[in-house]
Amino acid sequence: MLKIEHLTKHYKGSSKGVTDLSLHIKPGDIYAFIGHNGAGKTTTLKCAAGIQDFDAGRIEISGKDIRKDPIACKRQFAYIPDNPDIYEYLTGIQYLNFTADIFGVAARDREERIKKYGEAFEITASLGDLISTYSHGMKQKLALLSALVHQPKLLILDEPFVGLDPKAAVLLKEIMHSICAEGGAIFFSTHVLDVAEKLCNKVAIIKDGTLVACGDMETIVKQGESLESIFMEVVEHADAD
């Protein structure tokens, strides 16, 4: 579904970035991407979403190269950044309609999906209001709705649970499971290690732009341990190296 091979991206005049990172997210995966602040999570996600160029490596989505065929790749996924700065001058429904138009979603289909997810996230009543009046959590819900309106095969999410109320967070986890059950995949970054441990079947740990561990959650988190202790151990071990 999403294949990242030897991704390298460095910012001019900064030590931050990503070095030789390789990951393979398969259909059915809920893949957690964890690391401390400035480790390179957002850079990786942005490169995967095709909104940031990279220095070296290759990113494929459903077998298509993001550099060579970005439009075909972008039709396959939805990306939500950590701070969804959505067009504040549009109403919620206008933004959803705009996204649906870009993805060519039929009128009836978009109505059904917006109704379904809008009611589930309890945001339908606010869809007629300008996005500038929305709280952070409402913007996050709207961004999720705009992602779900075109039924993507892959969701690339940067800190998706930040700002969501508990009910919406539970709902998002259910939606993630249902997407994966239908053959889709989720690749998301988070700092909430408990959520990652319970929700995901795979995990990748990044430190200072380098992948220090990745694979099945069960393999990485051995019995009697927690992802939190593994994370601390792996990161400190990398420090010692």
Binding site: I93, A100, D101, I114, K115, T133
Partner: peptide
């Protein structure tokens, strides 16, 4: 905030990519 919180789902119209971008 001039939020009304009274939106009810009605029928939506599909538009072309260019018209939708231009409207935005």
């Amino acid at each position: 905030s001039a939020a009304k919180h009274n939106y009810k789902m009605g029928t939506l119209k599909a538009g072309s990519v260019l018209s939708s971008l231009c409207m935005r």
